[in-house]
Amino acid sequence: MAPFLLVLLASLAFSPAISRPDGGGFYDPARVTQLSWRPRAFLYSGFLSHGECDHLVNLAKGRLEKSMVADNDSGKSVMSQVRTSSGTFLTKHEDAIVAGIEKRVAAWTFLPEENAESIQILHYELGQKYDAHFDYFHDKKNLKRGGHRVATVLMYLTDVKKGGETVFPNAEGRHLQLKDETWSDCAKSGLAVKPKKGDALLFFSLHINATTDPTSLHGSCPVIEGEKWSATKWIHVRSFDHPQNVRTDGPCSDDNELCPRWAAVGECYRNPTYMVGTEDSLGFCRKSCGICDA
C-alpha cells in the first residue's frame, strides 16, 4: 500500500458521513468509538441491521464446514485445534444485501472493494473458540495475492449470552478496561469486545508505515452460554480480485510506478520496511532504493 494511503487510514473514524448513490455504502461516523490506538481498533454500533444479520446467517446455514487456519510455513489451509468453529465463504455480491454490506465496509475503511476477500460467516457453538493469532501472514504464498491483510472488519450477527468475546492480549491499555462478572476469564486477559448483534469491529494489522503490528494479536474467546455467529471481511494492501505478479523472492524490482518519486524524497530511509523489505518479506521499491546487484 502506498504511504499516503496508510496515513489516510489513521483518521478514518473521524471522517464525515459517506454514502454511495444506491445507499448501500452509507455509514455514520457518530456511531463509531475508538477503542485503541495500539492496535488501531474501532467499534461501530449498529453497523448492520438485525434483518441483515439474520439474512447472512440464513445464507450460511447448510453450507458450513470445519474452519481452517493457514500453515505458517507452507501457507496451505489446514485443520487445527487452534480454531474450532465452522464457517463458509459467501461469494462477492452474492445478492443485493451482501453487495450493500460490502460497499459499506469499503466506505468505512476507505479501502477498495477489490482489495477485500469474500465475507466469511463463522459459527461458534458451546466451547468453540479461536486462539490468539495474527491476520497478517508469515508465509510467502499468501502474500502473492493481495499482500498482507491490512484491516479486518468483524461483524457480530448474534448476541452471545456469555463468552465469545473478541480479545486483544497485547493491546496497550488493556489493563485499564473495567470488567465485571459478565465477562469471561478469557476476555479479562486483554482489551475485549462483547459480541452484540449488528455491531462491527474494525482493526488494523499493519502500522501506518505498512509494518506488521504485533499488538493486533487477537482471538475469539470460548462460547460459555449460547452460540455465536459472526461475519469477517479481510482487506489486503493490494487488489485481491486482480492480483499483480508481485515477486516475493528473486532479483529486486519496483512494484509501483511511484517508487522513483518516493525514493527521491527519502522514503527508502524513512520507510525501509515498505520500500526495501526485510529478510522475510521483500519491499515494493527495491530497484529505486538502489539495492539491486550491479
Rank of each mutant, 00 (worst) to 15 (best):
S15F: 05
P16H: 05
P21E: 14
P21Y: 05
D22A: 00
G24C: 10
G25C: 03
G25I: 01
G25Y: 02
G25Q: 03
F26M: 07
F26N: 08
Y27W: 13
Y27N: 13
D28T: 00
D28N: 15
D28M: 00
P29W: 01
P29A: 04
A30S: 12
A30I: 00
R31W: 00
V32Y: 03
V32R: 01
V32W: 05
Q34R: 05
S36W: 06
W37K: 12
W37D: 15
P39D: 11
P39K: 03
P39G: 07
R40K: 11
R40E: 12
A41Y: 10
A41Q: 11
A41T: 13
F42T: 10
L43R: 02
Y44I: 01
Y44A: 02
Y44E: 01
G46A: 11
F47H: 07
F47G: 05
F47M: 13
L48P: 04
L48D: 14
S49D: 08
H50M: 14
G51A: 09
E52N: 10
D54V: 02
D54W: 03
D54S: 11
D54P: 04
H55R: 07
N58Q: 15
N58T: 12
N58C: 10
L59Q: 13
A60E: 14
A60D: 15
G62E: 13
R63D: 10
L64V: 03
L64E: 14
L64Y: 13
K66S: 14
K66E: 15
S67P: 05
S67W: 08
S67A: 14
M68S: 13
V69W: 12
D71Q: 07
D71C: 05
N72I: 04
S74N: 04
S74V: 03
G75R: 01
K76I: 01
K76M: 07
K76R: 07
S77E: 14
S77W: 09
M79N: 11
S80V: 08
V82A: 14
V82T: 13
R83V: 03
T84C: 07
T84N: 11
T84M: 07
S85C: 07
S86M: 09
S86R: 08
F89D: 12
F89G: 07
F89C: 06
L90P: 09
L90C: 06
T91M: 14
K92F: 04
H93I: 02
E94N: 08
D95M: 05
D95Q: 05
A96L: 05
I97N: 01
I97G: 00
I97D: 00
V98M: 11
V98R: 04
V98T: 09
A99G: 06
E102F: 04
E102A: 04
K103G: 06
K103I: 00
V105Q: 02
V105S: 02
V105W: 02
A107F: 04
T109M: 01
T109Y: 00
T109G: 01
T109A: 01
T109L: 01
